[in-house]
Amino acid sequence: MKDEKAPAQPEQAIVRTENLTVGYGGTPILKGVTFHVAEGEIVTILGGSGCGKSTLLKALIGLLPPLEGSVWVAGYNIAGPDRETALEAARKKIGVLFQSGALLGSFTLADNVALPLTEFTDLPGALIEEIVHTKLEAVGLADYAHYMPMELSGGMRKRAALARAMALDPQILFCDEPSAGLDPVTAAELDSLLLNLNEALGITMVVITHELASILTISRRSIMLDKEAKGIIAQGSPRDLMERSEDPKVRAFFHRNPELLHTAAKAASP
């Protein structure tokens, strides 16, 4: 899903941060981060381990109140003075795929997917069953509806978690390292599933990852974070970043070559 349309202006964005500073215990991990994601776009957030990708995700889904700045999700400022009300409204429009899947271990797959439907809708049981079946079918797990999460492989659990995240037809899907811990084939299947959902349903996706194959396959735009800079060091099409970026950190990341970093550091030293 790589179209050539120009990125949306910030005011049209469905996810937007302005001068966002987030961290733990008053210590910022990221400072002054500003970016936006247009409706229907798939944006990958990249960076090395410890650069703040998961911290940024927590701020975007409202699990971590920012130290400064604003976060707009689906039209609500979830970092504003009326944070709780905004979060309540925004959460009805988002789905989150956690790194571990985060399925409830004591519920079957069907019950996990049905959970948001039974809780937040007044649909009759038959309709909920139908929706659950559709969602599980979409991720290729219709035959496993009555399995417990622990009876499934890592890839299947991720797909089931994706079905649950999609249960209420969210406008935005946040994914935290969806292909982490999966073999290349299963990871590619999951990537393909995300692309299909984006194409078929127009869901905006913000995907945290450092898997190069996933980045190049699914995203039309990537935002790269850096630990030392405590913020964004590059953004653009992943192909452009890989082929044209002059930044040694970006080049080292995309070319999987730490020597590029060392060479740059030596050149910079007097």
Binding site: G62, V96, L104, F120, A161
Partner: peptide, 17 residues
Amino acid sequence: GTMKVNEEVDALTVMGF
């Protein structure tokens, strides 16, 4: 505690529970 380790509590929170 185990639910917290497995991110299940976070998942419930972001689903709006």
